[in-house]
Amino acid sequence: MPDNRTNDWKTAWEAAVMPTYGTPAIELVSGKGSRVTDSEGREYIDLLAGIAVNALGHAHPAVVRAVSEQIATLGHTSNIFAHPQVIALANKLRGLISPDAHVFFSNSGAEANEAAFKTARLTGRSRILAAEHGFHGRTMGSLAMTGQPGKRAPFEPMPAGVEFYPYGDLDALRELILVAPDDTAAVILESVQGETGVVPAPDGFLTGVRELCDEFGVLMIVDEVQAGMGRTGRWFGYQVEDVLPDVVTLAKGLGGGLPIGACVAATPAGQLLSAGQHGSTFGGNPVSCAAGNAVIDTVIAENILDNVNRQGEYLRTALGDLDAVDHVRGRGLMLGVVLREPRPGFTARALEAGLLLNQPAEDVLRLVPPLNITDTDVREAVAVLKELLK
């Protein structure tokens, strides 16, 4: 028999919200740690974390305290004025990336990549080389750099000047640069392609891209929107190799659930955008920056990167041994469980069994739980997955 409460919220959603996401399967009303509860009182283990956003899980005391104190003190200033939280967060990011970096704050990863796009164009060159199958956002500039034709096609013509190379292929990238080396402004890539199905850069690729960019005077832009902020067991996914990008873009886990993005430009690239050339009314909002400061401080204070590596290794081993699983790829708590055969609709079955996860492809499960997920929740989730994958 249909549940009237379910019908009520679904009807209200469909009447009021644009159909860009379809109608959700459940309505979430509360969360604590790595667990969430829906409007019918059912509890779930959250292996999705708002698509790698809730770095510290739900209702973490440090984030709650930071944003509560800030909203009661100063909620918004615009960028006409400074405030302590934005300065503190910018300096924390400089400490994690480069002491010479400069930071532009936005509201999302797509906006951070827009800032990177504009930074590249200020080199005086026009070509931007992006990876096939990559994903950088849904705004027109970030979508133009997204190497998934199906996402771009409905909105063409895209902003001009973006060309695509095969992810992981240094020879192909060199050949593409050589088409017009004096007009190539930047190479953009993800250290781990998330939306494609959690595909890490092959060994040596990041170093090779850095060397190519140095050789031809091209900016290296690394999109760390999903892989950054500890998700891979390091602060940033590119740190698996000894490279420093010219530009790093962030969002998702940076705010621990609040909307914030950042374009961090190390090297001279940080001086390219000048006064009046870019801006964001809400970028660097005091409340979002307070959340970002709380996230970074907590990850350090609670040694959360150790937990990321430990739980990630357990998931990789426990799930990789299953007959239904071909292999598990990714790093830390950014994992793609590659199945031996397609399992369409698996997320619905997982939901019924009390797990939140998603499928970037019918034969790939993406697991991006909170970075501080507990042993208990990981082991219970694995037990459920084992039953579902039998």
Results as ranks from 00 to 15, higher is better:
197 G>R: 06
301 A>K: 09
207 T>I: 07
72 A>M: 12
4 N>W: 04
364 V>K: 03
71 I>E: 07
324 A>C: 14
296 I>W: 00
29 V>H: 03
347 T>S: 08
174 R>M: 08
147 G>K: 13
192 V>N: 00
37 T>W: 07
27 E>V: 09
314 Y>T: 09
11 T>K: 09
252 K>E: 08
236 F>M: 13
91 N>D: 15
170 L>Q: 03
365 L>G: 15
316 R>P: 13
130 A>H: 12
366 R>T: 13
13 W>P: 00
17 V>F: 04
152 R>I: 05
255 G>H: 01
118 K>V: 15
304 I>D: 05
191 S>W: 09
36 V>I: 05
152 R>V: 09
284 G>E: 14
266 A>H: 09
205 F>C: 00
30 S>W: 04
23 T>L: 01
354 G>M: 02
280 S>F: 11
73 T>L: 08
260 I>K: 09
62 A>G: 06
113 N>L: 09
215 E>A: 15
378 V>R: 00
298 T>E: 05
289 C>Y: 07
316 R>F: 04
59 A>Y: 05
13 W>S: 04
265 A>Q: 06
356 L>V: 11
168 G>H: 01
36 V>W: 00
337 V>N: 11
10 K>L: 02
302 E>L: 05
264 V>L: 15
269 A>Q: 10
126 S>P: 14
384 V>M: 02
127 R>F: 02
20 T>Q: 08
234 R>S: 14
180 A>C: 03
310 R>I: 09
82 A>D: 15
171 D>H: 00
76 H>A: 14
276 G>P: 02
375 D>K: 06
145 M>R: 06
111 E>A: 10
3 D>G: 03
162 V>L: 06
382 V>I: 10
21 Y>N: 01
251 A>V: 03
69 E>N: 14
202 P>S: 05
302 E>Y: 01
191 S>Y: 06
385 L>Q: 14
35 R>W: 05
216 F>H: 10
135 F>R: 08
124 G>P: 13
178 L>Q: 11
16 A>W: 10
223 D>L: 01
